[in-house]
Design a protein around this nucleic acid. Structure first.
Lengths: 232, 232, 232, 232
DNA sequence: GATGAATGAGAATTCATTCAT
DNA sequence: AATGAATGAATTCTCATTCAT
């Protein structure tokens, strides 16, 4: 699974507290006070730290003490930003989901054949989700969703149902274009996504011992749907 | 204060399900003593109760107090049978996995076309796993596997790798018979299983609000693999 | 920390509960198992310790840690007997009130003139309440009653209204006998009790610096009600 | 006692700062600067808010956060005026006590018979103390006095001993005039005050469920002391 | 073997107090 | 002077584990 350490994924402030342009009373345009900025940074640091901890240990086993330490803030500070552990957890997952949603919506934009779209989509997914920390979020939802119905609902509403709806449209278009033969596939867009989901779970559970070439798998799966490509 | 009850309401059967008289160490042909039988029953009751609790709440959030109450034994009794909470959890999952493995191995036994085998397999899976408590076990492993590497390993070794190996053979046989066109499918037997896995997760997370006709989905998926059936 | 010590304040009978003849599996006569007895003792110790702490610091400022230490039990043990701090507090006060009620009911039993009855009552009150720990309970209720309506209600129901009803009867009897001239006194039995209450509060607040001869005061008050005695 | 007033002394915007140029320390007969006035207002607001909160919840359970909110100032501002929570509490009670003392001293001033003086006094007490927020202060001292010896001392010195001294003089005067027969009453002026104290406690504890006609009670009590009036 | 009372380390949460802005 | 975000000590409550009966 890797954990990826604590690290600062691309300029994340984490325990920042330090530098960030100090400018005390710059006149001019809208200026969130330094304090406001700091507070926002702290909040972000808490969320980032929480994400690491929650994905690593699950909700119940995560200690806010550890989250605070990792975020570089005092325990009490967490409660300045979040009502309690559960509120932190839920806001965290929702926040973390936004980029996933963004990605999902962006990918199909480009034109070309449906197969091309899906292949590009698979590539993006493998690169940006399955092999990164974002995959942890998906796994986290899988793991805790049953215990947090409101979270599962949110995930369903914002990610799953939208994603499947988009996928269905794509499938219908593929059927109309004659790319996809089996018309019933439109009833179960889950089928198209299933191997991707399995890839995510696989990386989390068995990746260490039995790495999986997710991209290759997804291509074979697309061959199943569209028929084999003449040139691989 | 009173505390509720605790007491053992007359041999509560609980989730009985386990093989009752297992006789732990009786040598020879001697029938198990009363004591031994009792002990085995208790152990089984604890395992059954634990399964319910762990699948409902996850490892960390499960209280041994609740497990004991549900099993109709005293809290201390659990420690007579299991070293600690984690040992209970791991043995539990392993025990619960055995019938799943059994089922998996049994299904393909029967002959016929590969498609028939897989269809029968899908039916069994939906009926016996996805829609029953056994699905909870799979979800439990998905949820806690990352926190219990040895469990994930066990699951991989006993279920996943064996299952996939069997599936691969089946695929190869299907390819040899000409039922399956795409030869590369044998490299990724996960693809065949993926929709079934997704179905299990779906039931656990969204089943309540958005039920999924798992069997129908699996059939469409088989159509993808084998080509559509003339008669639906 | 002040206050007395820990130890079992002189064979206090405390929270019965024990006796109740449960007999676990003993044939013959009822004999609470050692364990049951121990548990009851512990419960009693917690109540006694809690009483000391709560009267010394008030509800909010009392630490359960201190109660546990004083009772000679572990923190967790308190929660074996009481749901939470508030439950302990309320049960405690109720338990502590029982002997007060007992005393109140017992005193008037003896015959003689109403004045004699009241004088005896005053003596008992001063000796057994005002100058002992029982006075602390009354003060505790005065102090916390506003924050614990259910407690004030209980106190009103069990002590105040009963006590005043008894007092009223006594007054009416005194009026009938011609001992008491002012018939309206029966409308406000509180008047008879007021100096006793003041004495209790006085001891708690100013007793250290300005001791009050409560008995002498109560006698003067009785003179007011009954007319001065020829012989003091 | 819920939120009630909230005080918010109009000038909520706070930010003061504005009148920057206003000389800070103009010598001579200069009227208090804006700043000084503001500060005094703030201090008063904090005291008023604190009084509400402390009487409603007691010392330990009162949160300075709530006091600040109710006073319309920031939490830190409290520390500009008071060393800490306890200092606020003590100054608060002392401040609140002043009018009570004033009243007490003023009432007996008017002439007439001692009975008239006391009756007028009773009226004032019931109207101005027992039935108003001032009664809360008395109750607060009863409740917290044991935990704040210096407060109890202050209360004793400033209110109780003075009040009782005045009462004693009045009693002696009544004895000299022949209005009061029992000469020993002068030894225990507490007796005269006792029902008034009981009335205050009663309102706080049982007033809601069992209202007490305090004035009527006090009159009956005066009848006890002075003999019944021919005309009621 | 069974029991369940007792333990105490551990975790969440609160809130008086401080201090940079 | 005023603010309010940040702190962290203190407190309540939980629960895995032990052990005398």
């Amino acid at each position: 699974m890797a954990k990826t350490v604590a690290a600062t994924p691309a300029g994340r402030p984490v325990a920042g507290k330090a530098g960030s342009a100090v400018s005390t009373k710059t006149g001019g345009a809208a200026k969130p006070s330094n304090r406001t900025v700091r507070a926002a940074e702290r909040r972000a640091a808490i969320i980032a730290a929480g994400l690491d901890e929650f994905t690593a240990r699950g909700f119940a086993a995560t200690r806010l003490d550890d989250v605070a330490r990792r975020a570089g803030v005092a325990k009490g500070t967490i409660y300045l930003h979040f009502k309690d552990k559960e509120a932190l957890f839920q806001e965290l997952v929702r926040t973390a989901l936004v980029p996933v949603i963004g990605n999902l919506m962006a990918a199909p934009a480009a034109g070309g054949s449906v197969r091309d779209v899906l292949e590009r989509f698979a590539g993006t997914f493998v690169r940006e989700v399955a092999e990164t920390k974002r995959g942890d979020i998906v796994r986290l939802i899988m793991a805790e969703g049953a215990r947090f119905p409101s979270l599962a609902d949110f995930y369903f509403r914002e990610v799953v149902s939208r994603g499947l709806a988009g996928m269905r449209k794509l499938i219908e278009y593929g059927i109309a274009r004659g790319e996809i033969r089996n018309a019933r596939l439109a009833d179960f867009p889950q089928i198209v996504v299933a191997p991707a989901m399995v890839a995510v779970m696989w990386q989390g559970l068995f990746g260490r011992h039995a790495p999986l070439d997710a991209m290759a798998m997804l291509k074979v799966h697309l061959d199943l749907i569209f028929g084999e490509r003449s040139v691989s």
